[in-house]
Amino acid sequence: MSSGMSVIVRTVTRFTYALIIVFGFYVIMHGHLTPGGGFQGGAVVASAFALALVAFGTAGLKGALNRHLLQSLEEVGALAFLGLAFAGVGTAFFYNILANSGSVFGGSDPAALASGGVLPLMNWAVGLKVMTGIASILIIMVIGARKEATE
């Protein structure tokens, strides 16, 4: 497991890794316009991490995918989501303060990329949370299963 798979899988992974991550970021970014959103895009990015884990094993894990960094980023995503929810607490919890406000995300054109009020920001927060959460679950389980196999 730690040595990874064959050279074909590793080469294909090198090509497709960045493409999958960019596609996941696209799905998160356009979550308020097209099908998708934070959950789906985060799952796509986490699938790229899973592909890298399967292809390269846990040997190449030390630098690129640090588990502690991933868990810190997950908490950053959760706190950003809660903070955006609390931002509208003057009216109601989860009130959309930026929609129709005329500021940066508050335009009146629903087809523009910078629209939707706090929705794009919440998409990024939840996307960060989901991608780092699933990636850290995968890394923990792979490390645990490898310890099991070597015993």
């Binding site: 959950f39 989901v130 699933i134 389980m141």
Partner: peptide
Amino acid sequence: SIVIGLATTALLLSFVV
């Protein structure tokens, strides 16, 4: 529901391990 299903499946599989 899908995300909750993923979380419960991960937790159940860790219990199995």
